[in-house]
């Protein structure tokens, strides 16, 4: 009774660096951005205007058209990743985890390498590959007699965004592959052997045993893809510039926010409107992640052993 537990200072001391650094570089800027969105500049004075920036963003055609266009493009960008990147990633992982595949380590690294390249390099390299003037894409198609299929994809409104999404898929397909590969390796042999005894082998073993067991990993990958895509900016910016041409067909929330916040050419930056867009982006990502956490992940957990 006499000796009360001493206050455990060391917990606070050890937590402090991380908490302080995280607060300074993440939490404070985040909330400050939200605060900035509630102001505007009139005659070089910062004035509090409440939600006026948001009502302009969603209510005035000048802003809302651009916003919905960017949001729509963002969903398309995300959809391509979900439909192309993740299934291919899962497929590659399934092939790589096959025990009789030779040079598996080589394929694994080769496929993963683009993910560690800089966006600028990827954007620039693909721009050159697809260039109608110097690119190798037209001549390669010519070699197999399919020149007629070539179009200046990055310059056409109807193809540009899909092309960029596929470039991004090429770059990042290694990440779902690696995560799924790790998940596949962790499936216990006994489970598979038990399945074999019941006559489940080959492809059906993948569909009936492995796939259900890696579903949680697929869920995580989906969330990572969602967050990554809705924060995307670099690839579009390096390939198409801040105006996200042609005719804003590749404009996503990231480029829209950049253009508004920092300005472009004669358009001066408007940090307050830019913050409003950034806040809207944050809200969209938050909602998406919450849907996953509360709607999907809880259900997946119940699935497990």
């Amino acid at each position: 009774m006499a000796n009360r537990r001493p206050i455990r200072w060391h917990i606070g001391v050890f937590l402090a660096p991380a908490v302080l650094v995280y607060t300074a570089v993440m939490i404070y800027p985040l909330f400050n951005t939200m605060r900035l969105a509630l102001f505007t500049e009139i005659d070089q004075q910062r004035v509090y205007v409440g939600l006026q920036n948001f009502s302009a963003l969603f209510g005035q055609a000048v802003w809302s058209d651009a916003f919905w266009n960017a949001l729509g493009n963002n969903f398309w960008f995300f959809l391509i990743h979900m439909l192309v990147q993740n299934p291919i990633g899962i497929g590659l992982a399934a092939i790589l985890s096959h025990k009789r595949l030779r040079f598996a380590a080589f394929y694994r690294s080769a496929i993963f390498i683009p993910a560690i390249l800089s966006f600028v390099i990827v954007g620039f390299a693909w721009k050159l590959i697809l260039s109608p003037i110097w690119g190798i894409a037209p001549s390669m198609l010519d070699m197999v007699g399919l020149k007629s299929l070539f179009a200046p994809w990055l310059g056409k409104e109807e193809y540009a965004l899909t092309t960029l999404a596929l470039i991004s898929v090429w770059q990042f397909v290694g990440i779902p592959m690696m995560l799924i590969y790790a998940a596949l390796l962790s499936i216990p042999e006994e489970v598979l052997e038990a399945g074999e005894c019941d006559g489940i082998t080959g492809m059906s073993a993948f569909w009936k045993i492995k796939l259900p067991l890696i579903l949680p990993s697929i869920g995580i990958i989906s969330v990572l893809t969602f967050v990554g895509n809705f924060n995307a900016f670099d690839l579009i910016y390096s390939a198409q510039g801040a105006l996200a041409g042609p005719n804003f067909s590749t404009d996503i929330l990231g480029t829209f926010m950049y253009r508004t916040f920092f300005g472009f050419q004669l358009q001066l930056g408007d940090p307050h409107m830019g913050s409003a867009i950034a806040t809207a982006m944050f809200a969209i990502i938050l909602i998406g992640v919450c849907i996953y956490l509360f709607g999907i992940q809880t259900r997946i957990r119940r699935y497990q052993f």
Partner: peptide, 16 residues
């Protein structure tokens, strides 16, 4: 303009 001018950039034009 040249083939595929829709995807032709400013440096491309200068070089051509």
């Amino acid at each position: 303009m040249g083939d595929g001018f829709e995807a032709q950039t400013y440096p491309d034009s200068q070089n051509l």
